[in-house]
């Protein structure tokens, strides 16, 4: 564990807490894509299958439970909680996200580090996470401007994988034979998809107005 990795996990945790804060306290999911949340629930469900078979550390297990619990409860809130569901923008959140799942599964079956059940699903979760933000970014462009909490949520979610890239660079230079092209390329694609969001998000700070 290095500082970049810890910063990445804390940023990821912060993004989840900001979204839960928004949904749980003001009972609103305005501007949030349910489809991205559903994809993230699948990402964590397929990435943390080994949560019961291989124990790494209390921290690792705790964080996996937090990410699993929060992603599924956010989906539940947005689908079934009356007050929250009412604020969900169904008409605008129309990205065909199921069309992302199958290609990621096929790609994981073709390109992986080891051909085992756990490994293929783990690789699938990497590919799926790389594109999971697309429905949210499309919704963002349709929704005129978004509230600060949603903007902060997306900013933190995009930043966490960028910090992971710094962690991989650090590990590459400090650990012999630390080479994982699949993880690196998936992480890079994921972070690059946020590029224009980051651009407008920083403009907001300079301009001092909402995220247009």
């Amino acid at each position: 564990m290095n500082i970049f990795r810890l910063a990445g996990d804390m940023t990821h945790l912060a993004s989840v807490l900001v979204l839960l804060l928004k949904i749980h306290t003001i009972k609103s999911c305005a501007g949030v894509s349910l489809r991205t949340q559903e994809l993230y629930a699948i990402v964590f469900a397929t990435r943390y299958l080994d949560i019961f078979t291989s124990f790494v550390s209390v921290y690792n297990t705790f964080m996996k439970l937090v990410f699993l619990g929060s992603s599924f409860s956010i989906v539940w809130y947005m689908r079934y909680h009356k007050a929250v569901h009412r604020t969900y923008d169904r008409e605008q959140d129309t990205f065909r996200h199921w069309f992302l799942v199958l290609p990621c599964l096929v790609l994981a079956l073709l390109i992986h580090e080891k051909f085992t059940f756990l490994e293929v699903l783990w690789t699938f979760s990497l590919y799926l996470e790389a594109v999971a933000i697309l429905p949210q970014l499309v919704l963002l462009q349709r929704t005129r401007n978004i509230d600060n909490l949603t903007g902060q949520y997306i900013f933190l979610l995009g930043g966490y994988r960028g910090l992971y890239i710094l962690n991989w660079i650090y590990r590459y230079f400090t650990e012999p034979h630390f080479v994982h092209w699949i993880t690196w390329i998936a992480g890079l694609v994921q972070t690059l998809l946020y590029a224009d969001f980051f651009y407008y998000y920083f403009l907001r700070f300079i301009g001092g107005r909402g995220v247009e």
Binding site: M1, K64, R171
Partner: peptide, 10 residues
């Protein structure tokens, strides 16, 4: 991969 040195990552 899960067995290798990435398994401690989230």
């Amino acid at each position: 991969s899960t067995e290798s040195d990435l398994k401690d990552e989230l």
